[in-house]
Computed example of a mutant assay.
Amino acid sequence: MTEPNKSRPPGWLRSILNLDEEVTKKFVVWGNGLSPLHSLRLHYKALEITCHGIPWLAFWLSLNWLFNCPDLIPLQINILCALILDIVVVGLVKAFFRRRRPIGNKNDAFVQIGPDNYSFPSGHTSRAAMIAYIFMFVWPASIIFYPPMLAWVVGLAMSRVLMERHYLLDVGGGILLGILEGIVMNMLWLGDDTAKAIYNQFADEKIEGGEYHV
């Protein structure tokens, strides 16, 4: 029996992907050839961990239970919802497109399972962009944190390409997806009473100001 033909992207999309691969390869050669960037290669793995979904979920879940501060609970619950949203959306998009990672990618990523094996979009950059968007436009932090947040997003995006984890189009798509997720979270942002009510469903103690506090 003849093996059925695998679905292939249309010609125009294949041309875009080929161009993306070519430009990415040139960018990697250029970037890794620069002394300042080359000296930072040891830090790329650390950047990778700073926006991995599992550490973020573990950290934020721990934060919810270790620091019982009523004023921060709405933020904690909403960020937790945002992280879950990002993981689900990125997983679905990766599973749909199934783009292979660059050939130069080393099999040393921190906890890579299921759809994580695919390249488009970059979940790390989508998560970073979403978090930065939330702390800049939804729950604005002090403006002094904007430069380091933006530097984190840009540095993370560049490191994903220079490590050959992703193509340029992957990180660009990840940033765009993260911004869209931030906009969605802004529209779906849970109010204080709702967030505290959700927290009360899992906390051992009722918190002051919660809908079910007695």
Rank of each mutant, 00 (worst) to 15 (best):
Thr2Ser: 13
Lys6Ser: 07
Pro9Gly: 07
Trp12Tyr: 09
Ser15Leu: 11
Glu21Leu: 00
Val23His: 00
Val28Met: 08
Val28His: 04
Trp30Asn: 00
Asn32Leu: 13
Leu37His: 07
Leu37Arg: 08
Leu37Thr: 07
Ser39Ala: 14
His43Val: 08
His43Cys: 07
Pro55Thr: 08
Leu57Asn: 07
Leu57Gln: 12
Leu57Glu: 11
Ala58Arg: 00
Leu63Arg: 00
Phe67Tyr: 15
Phe67Val: 13
Phe67Asp: 10
Pro70Asn: 09
Leu72Met: 14
Ile73Phe: 02
Ile73Met: 06
Ile73His: 02
Ile73Trp: 02
Gln76Arg: 09
Cys81Phe: 15
Ala82Trp: 08
Leu83Tyr: 01
Ile87Asn: 04
Leu92Ser: 15
Lys94Arg: 08
Arg99Ser: 13
Arg101Cys: 01
Ala109Gly: 09
Ala109Met: 08
Gln112Ala: 05
Asp116Trp: 01
Pro121Thr: 06
Pro121Gly: 05
Phe135Pro: 04
Phe137Gly: 01
Pro140Tyr: 09
Ile144Gly: 01
Leu156Asp: 05
Arg160Ile: 05
Leu162Ala: 13
Leu162Gly: 12
Arg165Ser: 12
His166Leu: 06
Leu169Ala: 08
Val171Cys: 08
Leu176Arg: 06
Leu177Asn: 02
Ile179His: 07
Glu181Lys: 03
Val184Phe: 15
Met187Ile: 04
Trp189Ser: 05
Trp189His: 08
Gly191Ala: 14
Tyr199Ile: 03
Glu205Val: 11
Gly209Ala: 12
Glu211Trp: 10
Tyr212Arg: 12
His213Asp: 13
